[in-house]
Design a protein around this nucleic acid. Structure first.
Length: 290
DNA sequence: AACTTTGTCAACCGCAGGCAG
DNA sequence: CCTGCCTGCGGTTGACAAAGT
């Protein structure tokens, strides 16, 4: 069958973008939108491939890009989400408005990963995060399965955060109580949202993914969404309502789950946790009923 | 001052999935 | 259902800068 190359490599400029190219791209997208990335370079008068234009726009030229170093809160969020999702940079980026997947990926690889690997428990982390761990939850009910999956992801996150905590303490970068560090994180943002759900009357909500196809909204979901949004410090402070809309479903994503389970069956916590977050059980499961 | 090593990050590459015809 | 195209994602590379010798 064969695949057409994304662009003709001959006559296509590569490497760093010049200010003039940036200007052309921004000007074109501001006036016309990006439309088809493949045809954009031609229309914009750029000697670049569409893929390169898309990357440049998404990672650098987009108006809502947040510049500057990552805040401690953002670091916490990245560590927390990476613990649950693994290398799902795009998914993690959705929780960090203004940050790109590329930026987060770079930050993880150059900063956070090193910190974790320098921990004496690194081998343990590696084992925990290994994708080779089998999933053995087939026989469980749907709700139990989700709970087991979630708990496993949570345990992994706890392990990572635990080490992060001790490392930070030892290096005096941040003053954090060892035993409280995970709880502090867990009690903030996402964790807080979970707690609020737990405190609710056991209403179950349709997954945000499902909501895409069926616009019917679950009332409690909206409430939870609002609560979850309120827990975010300044995440939505400097973005437009449109941009916020694009992130909102992901806030919903984060709140539909549970905690407190004692089964520590190991699973592939990256993919399954993502699934869990993005497609939490609908009315069949009573996971929120305690 | 010159050279080497290390760190950072923008950009590229290839693959997978979604979608339209 | 099949095929081909397009987009998005994650891993990797390479250029540049900073730090070290």
């Amino acid at each position: 069958m064969g695949r057409a190359p994304c662009c003709d490599k001959d006559g296509v400029k590569r490497g760093a973008w010049s200010p003039e190219e940036d200007q052309l791209l921004v000007h074109y997208i501001n006036n016309h939108g990006h439309g088809s990335w493949r045809t954009l370079p031609k229309h914009a008068g750029l000697l670049r491939c569409g893929k390169s234009c898309r990357l440049r726009w998404i990672n650098y030229l987009r108006p809502d890009i947040k510049r500057g170093p990552f805040s401690p809160e953002e670091e916490d969020t990245i560590i927390q989400l990476h613990g649950m999702l693994g290398n799902k940079w795009a998914a993690i980026a959705l929780k960090l408005p203004g940050r790109t997947d590329n930026e987060i990926k770079n930050f993880w690889n150059t900063h956070l990963k090193k910190r974790l690997l320098s921990s004496p428990h690194s081998s343990w982390v590696h084992k925990l995060s290994s994708k080779a761990e089998p999933i053995n939850v087939k026989s469980e009910s749907s709700s139990t399965r989700h709970m087991v999956q979630w708990e496993s992801a949570r345990v992994e996150a706890e392990a990572r955060l635990s080490m992060e905590s001790s490392l930070l303490n030892s290096s005096s970068v941040r003053k954090t109580d060892d035993s409280d560090y995970f709880l502090r994180l867990w009690n903030s943002e996402i964790g807080e949202s979970f707690q609020k759900i737990k405190g609710k009357d056991g209403g179950v909500c349709q997954s945000p993914v499902s909501q895409k196809s069926t616009p019917t909204k679950c009332g409690s979901s909206s409430d939870i969404t609002e609560q979850a949004k309120n827990t975010r410090t300044s995440a939505f402070a400097n973005i437009t309502p449109e941009q916020e809309d694009s992130y909102r479903p992901n806030v919903d994503d984060m709140v539909g789950s549970s905690d407190s389970l004692t089964s520590y069956d190991l699973i592939d916590s990256s993919d399954t946790a993502l699934e869990l977050l993005l497609d939490f059980p609908d009315g069949d499961d009573d996971v929120f009923q305690y």
